[in-house]
Nucleic acid binder design. Structure first.
Lengths: 175, 175
DNA sequence: ATAAGTAAGTTGCATTTCACAACCAAAGTG
DNA sequence: CACTTTGGTTGTGAAATGCAACTTACTTAT
């Protein structure tokens, strides 16, 4: 019956309407956007990204989801290929290639020729890159704790699960 | 006890671990990002935005959250000022000003001088803009239905509420 | 085995976004 | 009447991103 001691907002009886959470900004309502998933996702993204960029600003890896993800992947999967990174990033190969190019130039990763396939490259992390990857992990963890502190502990798991499900479904939809 | 006939994934007993939802992409795990809100938010954003851009592509209002929001606000609040729009968009005034400039040039809105404050402008929708605003609303509603169809109906309200809460908290954090 | 097709990366290009700084004009405040 | 704050504009520069075209290499089919 969903009557645990969770906060009242955590559990939603399916017959309760509870649409009383009206979103207004400076007194303005936002039309259809008020009920649009896309609005909140997009707005959250811009704030989160800005915050993360600020935290990474000193890091020679600066802005963008791309480099962050790339360096972690290369660190975790020695010999990974650019095209694999592109798939994770959901970017095309030119975009990914440039990200990699920048990281090679910065001495964070190293390119080799894939012995099994002469078209492809194998990417490897350098020592410098490895150190940076560790910093990146720390920053991401810090952001998760500090920035998302407003999510009640009981809600975290659930929110995360919903995001994951949305993400996975969306990926299948795109491919 | 959370034993409704909802899908098993919908209700999360607080003592169940249920972290079995492992996210992999093409067989790759994504390091700390796997547990990071930011990853899912940013990834969702890029897909949603792309989809929305595609749906709007024919609309003289093309890409970006900015114009969409702006035209709806001007339609809903005749005489609204650019700075108010900027606050909703969480952009600075130059960015907002250029969005408005483009929309004026396209004949979607009209600028007047605010009688009460000679620095400020009052924005008004034109007929053309009004028609477009209607199209925009329809597209957003369509996207919400078609694109987010993978969210189970029982989950919608809850996911929405969590997004709203996150959004509102984040706004207070930024201001 | 050779030809056609497909996949990996690169380059060029063109578009858009976006933030910061500097600036002007008008209000409000002492 | 200074001084500060607010509303908007212009300028500039950096960066992301997506598309098209191209080269090289692998794969498949005939």
């Amino acid at each position: 019956m969903n009557t645990d001691d969770n906060s009242a907002m955590t559990s939603l009886p399916e017959n309760a309407v509870e649409d009383d959470l009206k979103v207004t900004i400076g007194g303005l309502q936002i039309d259809v956007l008020e009920g649009a998933f896309s609005w909140y996702i997009r707005s959250l993204d811009s704030v989160v990204s800005r915050d993360l960029d600020a935290r990474m600003a000193h890091l020679e890896i600066a802005r963008g989801k791309g480099k962050i993800t790339a360096i972690l992947l290369v660190d975790d999967y020695p010999g990974i290929r650019p095209s694999q990174i592109a798939e994770v990033l959901m970017r095309d190969r030119p975009a990914t290639g440039r990200i990699i190019e920048g990281m090679v130039a910065a001495g964070l990763i190293r390119r080799e020729e894939d012995p099994a396939d002469q078209r492809a490259q194998s990417l490897f992390i350098t020592e410098k890159g490895q150190a940076l990857a560790q910093e990146v992990r720390a920053i991401i963890r810090a952001q998760e704790e500090e920035f998302f502190d407003f999510i009640a502990p009981e809600d975290r798991a659930q929110f995360m699960r919903m995001l994951k499900r949305a993400y996975l479904n969306m990926r299948t939809k795109c491919s």
